[in-house]
Amino acid sequence: MKITMQDVEHVALLSRLELTDEEKEEQLVQLNKILEAMEVLNKVDTSNVEPLTHVLPLKNVLREDEYRDTLPKEKVLQNAPDQEEGMFKVPRII
């Protein structure tokens, strides 16, 4: 499958990345090269193989639903680019 400039723009939107025209061109060339190298995977017969998301025999690791200390608000906010009255501040949404 060859990816097109339209694909690049769609994926950039999904990725929340504003790319320059130059970057889009570069992405188009490199992504196609990389995806072409991935084609080799189609040589492998995986019809009877289960997908492996991770190697551990662990499943649904739970703990008691009990109170634990959390970070104090000022520490949570210490790296915020913008804040007001103890809240993260962002541009107007609605």
Partner: peptide, 24 residues
């Protein structure tokens, strides 16, 4: 970009799922 593409609708099975099977 590469990861988003591999997970995106229409390509998930061809790329991501295939890769997980090969991983096995």
């Amino acid at each position: 970009m590469l990861g988003t593409y591999a997970l995106s609708s229409g390509y998930y099975d061809a790329y991501y799922l295939k890769a997980l099977k090969v991983r096995n």
